[in-house]
Structure formats: C-alpha cells, structure tokens
C-alpha cells in the first residue's frame, strides 16, 4: 500500500489529545501495576506467579476462556449463518438479542445465571438431580465466560457472510460441488479470518471477566478460582505485591493477545481491500 500523505488538518491536536489522555488515564495508571510489582523484586515476582495456587488459577482462567471461545465459535458461527442467510419471523428481534451480553452489566448477568442454575433455579432444579451441577463449578464459570463473549464471534462473522458473493457459491454448485464441499472449501476459508478474530476477542474478554463470575463461582483455590478473583483475594489479604505481580502477568498476556488481534484485523482488512 502506498503511503498516503497526511493532508488533513488537525493531526497535531487530535493526536496530542489522544496521546495525553491515553498516557494520563491508561499508561500511567497501568504502569503503577508494574512499578509496584518491580518494587517487590524480580524473585518475588517469579515466585508469586509460579506458585501452585496462581498457576491453577491461570489454568482455570485460560482453559475456561479458550473453551468458552470455542463454544462461541461454534454457536456464534451458527447464529451468524442463520442471521445472514435466512429470513424468518422475528429475525430483527433475534438480531438485536445477540448483543445482549454487551449491554447487560456483568453483575446482573452473573446474578441471573447463578439464580437460574442454582439447586432451586429454573434450570438447576432439573439439571442437579441429573448430576449436572452448573452453579459453583467450573462449568458455571465456563457458562459465564461463554455468555460474555458470545456477541464477538457473531458480530465479526456476520458481515463477512452477508458480503459473500452468491455467484461464487452458485459457480461451485454448478461445477458439481456438494453442499458440504461448498461450505468447507468455498465459504469457510473466507469466513475463517473473521471467525478467528471474533474468537480471539471473545477469549480476551473472557480472560479478564470478573463481575459475572463473582456470583457464579465458588472461589475455591485450585478448583474454581479464576485469576481475577485470586487478585481480589490477595488484595483483601494485605498482599499488595502479590496482587500486582499476578495482575502484571495478566496485563502482559492481555496486551500480547490484543496486539495479535489488532495485527490480524489490520492484515485481513488489507487483504479485503486489495482483493
């Protein structure tokens, strides 16, 4: 892509405001985490972030987030497919509902999910006798994390599906491809970048989720304690350097993940523009 000369005015002021705001409100506060961690020393940092309880929380958080993102990929693709390609009664309503996890505050979502899946809840009362415990188990955490990340996949995949050129599909069909072949060889490759981006965003969101999990998790160390909850517990136990150490590790993870997502989006956008 050729570099474009910046001709429009306002670069200085807009970028200036942006940088100042970001520095003041994002960079400097976040650096507090790293500085506080650093003050505890490198050894303390390493010993904290590698202690069994913390590692268990990473495993749980990352595991549940990845699982949630995977579930979201599957069902997100399904819902995006249905919305993009079919018409049915109430479609506009369904389309609006997809964004619900974005709009519903995390605490409300968590409260509601906990109520529904508790022993005496709407779903819980049927599931628990069957041996399926959701509330207060890793399953409940998985549910909450899936819930909050759901719209990401749908919203990323849907536009791509909608923009899909029908002619290509019809061409494949007329050349004798089966339905499945059309799907897997023609449609999926086009959708895949958007699907990956959407899942990655859902993953990033799930990694940091707190409000909804607070209500549905048991916060038992080693079993149902996600990293955010562990940070809070450390805070409450006077262990500030421990809390910031774990927070710093999490921040790095989030930052790397976000960077990867943004680069991926930039690359796929360039790809779409040149094609």
């Amino acid at each position: 892509m050729k570099a474009r000369r910046n001709v429009l005015p306002g670069f200085g002021i807009s970028t200036g405001i942006t940088l100042a705001y970001i520095s003041l409100l994002i960079l400097i506060p976040l650096s507090a985490v790293f500085l506080s961690t650093a003050s505890g020393g490198w050894d303390h940092f390493i010993s904290t972030v590698t202690s069994p309880q913390v590692v268990a929380s990473y495993k749980l958080t990352i595991g549940a987030s990845i699982a949630g993102a995977a579930i979201n990929s599957l069902f997100g693709l399904l819902v995006a497919w249905v919305l993009a390609r079919y018409d049915f009664f109430g479609k506009r309503l369904v389309d609006a509902i997809v964004d619900l996890p974005f709009a519903l505050p995390t605490a409300v979502a968590g409260l509601s999910l906990a109520a529904i899946y508790a022993d005496n809840g709407w779903f819980g009362r049927y599931l628990v006798p069957l041996g399926i415990k959701v509330a207060f188990t890793p399953t409940g955490i998985l549910l909450a994390l899936t819930f909050v990340g759901f719209p990401f996949v749908v919203r990323n995949v849907q536009p791509v599906l909608e923009d899909l050129d029908a002619e290509i599909e019809e061409a494949a069909r007329s050349l004798g491809a089966t339905r499945w072949q059309t799907f897997s060889r023609v449609i999926m490759p086009t959708v895949l970048p958007a699907l990956v981006t959407g899942s990655a965003l859902a993953l990033a969101r799930a990694l940091g989720e707190y409000g909804s999990v607070v209500f549905i998790s048991a916060n038992i160390p080693f079993k149902t304690q996600i990293t955010s909850l562990l940070i809070i517990t450390k805070l409450e136990e006077y262990d500030y350097t421990g809390a910031t150490a774990i927070a710093a590790a999490m921040l790095l993870m989030s930052f790397v993940l976000l960077l990867a997502i943004n680069l991926l989006q930039a690359r796929s956008r360039r790809y779409q523009e040149t094609s």
Partner: peptide
Amino acid sequence: NVTVLDTGARGATTTFIQRGI
C-alpha cells in the same frame, strides 16, 4: 470438605441459604 470460601460470614450464609449449597 469445604465447597465454597466466601469473603465474609454473610457471603457464606448467602451461599448456604440462597444458593442451597
């Protein structure tokens, strides 16, 4: 044997009473 560790006594009571755990 402990299933849930809440932050405070009231949290524990809520877990036992309301959530039926």
